[in-house]
Design a protein around this nucleic acid. Structure first.
Lengths: 157, 157
DNA sequence: TCAAATCCTATCCAATAGGTAGGAACTGAG
DNA sequence: CTCAGTTCCTACCTATTGGATAGGATTTGA
């Protein structure tokens, strides 16, 4: 599961994506996205340090995306806020770490499966951009529409 | 990422799958899979309560799989030990929970993407069984072989 | 100069992950 | 019938982390 922090980051970035190039203040974003203001402040600082957003201070300052929304992928955002996409460190590409206790094939059988999961997840998240999500027309529609999630009737889409 | 607990559970179950129907004691499994014995004891208890394994006590007792290895999927194991496969509760099928603060499309744009990820992950994990992993010939070889993970040169496969 | 904004550091709290301890209950071998 | 080896159960511990708040320093245009 994503951390709340990660979810907030994604919501905030999607918000900025929808706001054109205009700077949006943390207070405004927090209010309209239902995020605790002070907490969002910290998150936006992190996003700035990661150069996903740019900020202007003072007067009518705020944050805006540092690049076009179609150049910012879910993958890079989530890796920043939540770390590896993979289910195991040994199946991660960007955060690879060997399992200390990996001596027999059991571990490797595991790793094979986990690597395939990682590949599929990365395939989606590294190809889907903020712009895709906003437009509602993701890069790989075939994948995204494959099998709709249907949580009762609670949905706006 | 999977919890250590989940990883241990998977390793132990794969171990049992490789052991034919013969009961294996916790001590033996722990030793050969490099898992703290007492901790594994707790995990095996949980797996028994979930009816993934059966136990016999006393003498030459131990644990064995409660069903054939080709009827136990990674999906059910991981859901048991680590909860939802989805990245967000609102994108989960088995653990669905509405996001309290979900009012505008941002959340739904998010959910669309996360749902597609969930579907792909579940597709793999619910179709891959212990037997598949052990045989090294997973259900959907096309997927699993799609893009091999290459962590430097540290690999036994 | 003032209000509004980002920025920075420190702190707090509850929950969880990971693991340990100690022993009760069971069971076949001897 | 006892004993060693096993599962089973309850409780506990400790470090880390997630999620957030507090308070103020700094910047900047109106």
């Amino acid at each position: 599961m994503l951390s709340q922090r990660g979810r907030y980051a994604l919501k905030a970035l999607l918000h900025l994506g929808r706001s054109g190039g205009e700077p949006r203040g943390v207070t405004a974003i927090a209010a309209s996205e239902q995020i605790p203001r002070k907490y969002l402040e910290a998150i936006m600082s992190e996003l700035r340090r990661a150069e996903l957003v740019e900020s202007t201070r003072g007067w009518s300052g705020g944050y805006r995306l540092a690049k076009p929304a179609d150049l910012i992928t879910f993958g890079e955002i989530i890796r920043l806020t939540d770390g590896p996409l993979a289910l195991l460190p040994c199946a991660s590409r960007n955060f690879y770490k060997r399992c200390e206790d990996c001596v027999d094939e059991a571990a490797c059988a595991l790793r094979r499966v986990m690597a395939s999961v990682r590949n599929q997840v990365a395939e989606i998240l590294d190809r889907t951009t903020l712009a895709d999500a906003i437009a509602g027309s993701p890069a790989s529609r075939a994948l995204l529409d494959a099998e709709p999630v249907d949580p009762g009737s609670a949905d706006t889409a």
